[in-house]
Design a protein around this nucleic acid. Structure first.
Lengths: 234, 234
DNA sequence: ACATAAGGATCGTTGAACGATCTCACAATA
DNA sequence: TATTGTGAGATCGTTCAACGATCCTTATGT
């Protein structure tokens, strides 16, 4: 109910401000703790299977057990930690079955996202191109873990073509879990590098409008990656 | 490393027992509290938008604030509660945009699940048939909320055709959120009853091997439901 | 060799406490 | 009258200390 007498703000300004509302979202201590641990886990600092003691980590980070438990709860829901009642939390150790499950999901969701996105939005294409470009730069600099990260961003971008924030969120979790399985690969370069070119190809097919072709290529991409990872987890 | 000298258990018994392992999984207080609240929320006892006070609910349930907060955290991740820093948790209030997002996800995932499941496993078909049968019984007894529940189980079963436990879990959350939007429908019978027959038809098409037909029918099913819900959320 | 019991470590949960933040009503101001 | 400032009260975020319950390990006994 805005009054008509005085002009308070030009029309549209409030809407534009509303978009910034998320930036303003402060974070609780528990979330910051979770961010730190997430970093260390995906970095491989804690080996899969390691137990994360409430006491030792709590004292190290100078947070109370309660706060730490909230952080653990967050990471458990992301699949990075496994919580066992009365035993504590452990860095998730993925089995070959887990890898199969994850790739079954990826095949279904990523292929469907490509199929449903005809034509792809300009914003969606920009995300794909950006990921490919980033991966290329990282490869030039021989930073193979960064190549892997950028490759994952490419697949995140594929899912974003579907335009569902909930699906995006789910994919984020799936990729976080996959990161755990990447830790098992001895040679990051041999594992990540080849997929760069394949992502480039997929992007090209999408841009040219050949959706079925892109889907086929993606399918074989995922099958190959799954095979490698399953082998490493046996 | 099993010793060969003494036979401890007949072969296969350990595997059968292993399946019961989940039943043995005790639950923490926080999880039980979450289960109670989940029930009340999906039942509509707490209206969307209501703030859930830590103090009042904690004293009512006789659990400490810390435990209650863990339960809140669980339900927040399920999308049933919305947590706002320093303001507390609120029963999620879905917008029309949320409904659109949820149905975009459902279209993509459910249709893809049907497409990928050729031929469908016998176990998968059993789940579908069971859901349809349950819905039929509930309809005969004029229990329309139960019809809605069974219909949702049907769609859960569709996703289970894909054979990914992670996808199943995601669908569980999506349907839990959808339940919130169902609360906005004034007339449960008018909303739920028509979909029973359509689910029956979809099942028949799947059984007859007409996957594309099933997909088309499902697509229109979801489009109609979305339209009704979006209208109710405007 | 196996079952049992004891001890220590860790988790689950509670209750109290204090500072920080939000909300709302009320007064001050233009 | 409409906006801005102020303060009190309520609630949240976080910490701390404590105790029972559960798990793991080790020692003990048969």
């Amino acid at each position: 109910m805005t009054k008509g007498l005085a002009v308070v703000m030009d029309g549209g300004a409030t809407e534009r401000l509303a978009e910034d509302r998320v930036l303003l979202g402060r974070t609780s201590t528990a979330e910051r703790v979770a961010a730190i641990l997430r970093e260390h886990i995906t970095e491989g600092m804690f080996e899969p299977g390691t137990r994360l003691s409430e006491e030792s980590i709590g004292t190290a980070l100078r947070v109370s057990r309660n706060t730490l438990r909230e952080a653990f709860r967050l990471l458990s829901h992301e699949g990075l930690l496994a919580h066992e009642l009365n035993r504590g939390v452990f860095v998730r150790r993925l089995t070959a079955d887990d890898v199969v499950d994850l790739y079954r999901l990826r095949r279904l969701v990523e292929c469907a996202a490509i199929r449903h996105a005809v034509p792809p939005s300009e914003k969606g294409l920009a995300g794909l191109r950006d990921a490919v470009r980033t991966a290329g730069i990282a490869a030039d600099e021989q930073r193979w873990e960064a190549v892997g990260t950028a490759n994952m961003r490419f697949h995140q971008a594929i899912v974003e073509l579907a335009g569902s924030s909930r699906l995006d969120e789910m994919m984020r979790q799936v990729l976080a879990e996959l990161r755990l399985s990447f830790l098992a690969m001895k040679n990051p370069r041999a594992f990540h590098e080849p997929y760069l070119a394949r992502n480039r190809d997929i992007l090209q097919l999408i841009e040219s409008g050949d959706t079925p072709g892109a889907e086929r290529l993606l399918e074989s991409y995922l099958a190959d990656a799954e095979r490698q990872l399953v082998q490493a987890h046996s």
